[in-house]
Amino acid sequence: MTLDFAIRITEILVGFAFAQQSIEHFTASGRERVLFIIRFVLSLLLIIGFHTGWVLAFLFLIALEILKRFQGPYNGGADRMSLLILCCLCLTQVAPTQLWKEVAFGYLALQLMLSYFISGLVKVVNPEWRNGRALNDVFLFSVYPASESLRKWSNWPRVLFLTSWAVMIIELAFPLALYSSHFLVVALILTASFHLSNAFMLGLNRFFWIWISAYPSIIWFQERIFPAS
């Protein structure tokens, strides 16, 4: 995958993710609705590739305004990743040389890798995660909009214990997947499935779309660091 192709795919995917996020605010009132309608239109322009540099710049300004409006990232980690991807795409536009363009896009790939590894590290040093109780509590009383039937999974501690370890192993082993393009494909399928299940079970749909948007960066990065592997 060439750098320019990976960047273009990222722009399209993030355009879809931003459009979807923006639609959620169409029922809001006043300035908030106007802000997100503009963001929606800019997202469509990003998807079709219309003056991408300017569109990214305006999306960045709107992102700053959204940060101010909601006193921080609106939706936690998903919006932080949205900002990260947007910043990296903006930097690829203003990079003075091909090398700096690669650095900006490679930074996104490294952050994506760390998002899994650090998350796994934080979990594995926590005894509550190691014995499965943390995931049990997620289903039992977390604020996520899980259905009543899903909350009954807290009655299955052994399943949740195994699930906890599966999640931690996938997250901690993710950096090793960079060694081979085949390993990386398997790892990305597993992590995408993880995000998809979170979207269905816990209502974390934003995470799925925005993390998927960053996947082209790591596919390009893997080929760049370990060519023909």
């Binding site: 909601f70 006193q71 921080g72 609106y74 939706n75 936690g76 604020v143």
Partner: peptide, 23 residues
């Protein structure tokens, strides 16, 4: 997630008025 974020910010007394109004 946004509401949960507002609640957590109220709990640590960070810009509580704003977050109370949002909820």
């Amino acid at each position: 997630m946004f509401i949960a974020g507002c609640a957590e910010r109220i709990a640590v007394n960070h810009n509580a008025d704003h977050n109370e109004t949002e909820i």
